[in-house]
Write a protein that binds this DNA or RNA. Structure first.
Lengths: 337, 337
DNA sequence: ATAACGTTAGAAAACGTTTTCTCACACTCA
DNA sequence: TGAGTGTGAGAAAACGTTTTCTAACGTTAT
């Protein structure tokens, strides 16, 4: 039923080896080449990728393991990476862990079994404790989240600086009781929290940072609790776009409105943010560039397996909305190596 | 370097066939089974999926080809499908066509080369004209968009009825000059437009339906033009969530505000929609159920290759927000076979 | 003119599994 | 007791490619 390379060879009256050579673009007699191409067309031959990968021992496949595909940040980065990959003739296996360490481990195992060329990975914090346990066996580039001491290439946002910029922005707008909500499942939340706290201290603000759980209802409870305390904050910073939504929901539950009752700012520039509550001030991440950089680093790593690990830190861009804050900006650019 | 099944066999002092049998859970002597398992662990053996797929001739892989991964509707459906698939031990190859017929054809070709078990597919309209050219060679289930006369299984929203419900909703709120914006790249936009026009006619409204191009700037121009005409509509219906955003952007450009200056409604219940302009009324699609149904139909099709094609039409749910419209609802349920 | 070399294409091996085939063994039943 | 039957494990074939190996040929240089 299925037509294989031998069938093509028979029709073209050449050997299977020659067909293979034509298809992989190596030099063959033009006359033969023509016969082969004609035979391919007439038979409707399609190479069997499994067989090809088995024999050639390279899969031209990269794994992309993200923490939450519903987060527009990750879909944007995924799209960028996929486009770059297919342009180079590589396939992408996209995996979504839902921040679940078990799924994460499972997908890593799958990457092994697929014998992927390399992996781009946004890990949750389970590996921080047992970083040495993560012996990839293939090149890995971390995105969005770092793993201290894992010795892996990574491309990150300059989280601390950006969080500080957000605090400064709110401070400049006159807010003094700023609270921050940060995830603890990834290094990203932690770094942003550190930047937030340092900036607040430097400005002499008594800012409170709170840990956000990943589950939505629990997260909402946390926000509600924070806002129901004795002195309500006059500004809120959320660790990412998804949490910003949770905050909005909690505010609504309390009958509060942003930015009238409380200022709101955060990370990730989702496309709806300009339309909500007079516009939300956020740190926009250079998603396209994050994808491009990760891909480049992965390919570099394939060429130079033993080069020292690199860490690329990209700047974000403050998008000031709502009140009359300063219209600050900075083109995304590497600031470290 | 790499450890194969033969190495495991040698360590366990059994034949490779036995190792294979243990790993695929067939009955073997318990003592041997134990030796094999121990050997697998001690050697760190990982099966080579390419080899396995080549020999066994089934890939346990389904392709999922969507039109726009940035559209939350598709990410939600993808997530549902992926969860179901992995629960059944199947892999998913996720492809994003960006509504580009060339990409679409390329990915379909890839599906062939991967020898996928089946494909779940949201096609753009290129196939309508040349439906017979789409000879899959594997089971295909269409989602979100239908291909008349292609004889394929499909699961769709009841687009016409839902569009009509939206019109009725706006009419009940007192709006009389309703305009609709519909994409022409897929059957979905067309069906919604038909439902919109029929409902308007039935209500005696002089509703105008306009075609939205896919490119964002062009789309925005269309909306701006529509709103700058001699008599401005007092309500706008958008064909999906992405277009709703385009509309919001165009409104802003004209200095108009929803729902004060104009009412806004559409399809897809994205998570931010309750927070924008007092809340947008939308038709919520049963994304989870769409994914589940598509998966079920695909598996059914594998069991019964020659059964007649089925078309499942699911109801959406009107989520009434903003003004004081009726709080209508209907649980998603099949209404057709 | 002949040896040495480079190029080209076919023959055959190899990739790492699963599956078929074969055989040995134990058990049942007449 | 002996033939028939069922079970379980190893040997070997098979999956569809790519790659190595080998041989033939044409070209150049001596």
């Amino acid at each position: 039923m299925a037509v294989g390379i031998k069938d093509v060879a028979r029709v073209a009256e050449v050997s299977p080896a020659t067909v293979s050579r034509v298809l992989s673009g190596r030099s063959v007699d033009p006359a033969m080449q023509e016969r082969v191409l004609a035979a391919v067309k007439s038979t409707g031959y399609r190479p069997n990728l499994a067989a090809r990968r088995l024999r050639s021992q390279h899969t031209n496949t990269i794994g992309l393991i993200v923490a939450d595909i519903r987060n527009p940040f990750f879909t944007a980065v995924s799209r960028a990476i996929e486009n770059l990959a297919t342009a180079r003739g590589m396939r992408v296996i996209l995996c979504n862990t839902d921040e679940d360490p078990a799924k994460e481990a499972g997908y890593l195992e799958l990457m092994h079994e697929e014998r992927v060329t390399g992996v781009i990975f946004a890990p949750c914090r389970q590996w921080v404790e047992k970083a040495e346990r993560l012996e990839p066996g293939f090149p890995v580039v971390l995105i969005d989240r770092s793993l201290p001491s894992a010795g892996l290439d990574s491309v990150l946002l300059d989280n601390e600086s950006m969080a500080a910029e957000l605090v400064a922005h709110l401070h400049a707008q006159g807010h003094r009781r700023i609270a921050g909500l940060f995830g603890a499942a990834s290094s990203t939340g932690i770094e942003r929290r550190v930047g937030f706290e340092q900036a607040a201290r430097k400005l002499g603000l008594a800012a409170t940072a709170v840990e956000m759980p990943h589950a939505t209802e629990a997260a909402q409870r946390v926000v509600t609790e924070l806002l129901s305390g004795p002195v309500r904050p006059d500004a809120l910073v959320a660790s990412n776009g998804v949490m910003l939504l949770t905050v909005l929901r909690a505010l609504r539950g309390l009958g509060l409105e942003a930015p009238t009752d409380i200022a709101l700012a955060g990370f990730d520039n989702n496309d709806w943010m300009e339309f909500v509550g007079g516009g939300l001030s956020v740190i926009e991440q250079p998603v396209e560039e994050i994808g491009r950089t990760a891909m480049t680093m992965l390919l570099d790593r394939l060429d130079h397996p033993d080069a020292p690990a690199r860490k690329v830190v990209l700047a974000g861009r403050l998008i000031s909305r709502g009140s009359s804050g300063p219209r600050a900006s900075a083109a995304p650019q590497p600031i470290g190596a």
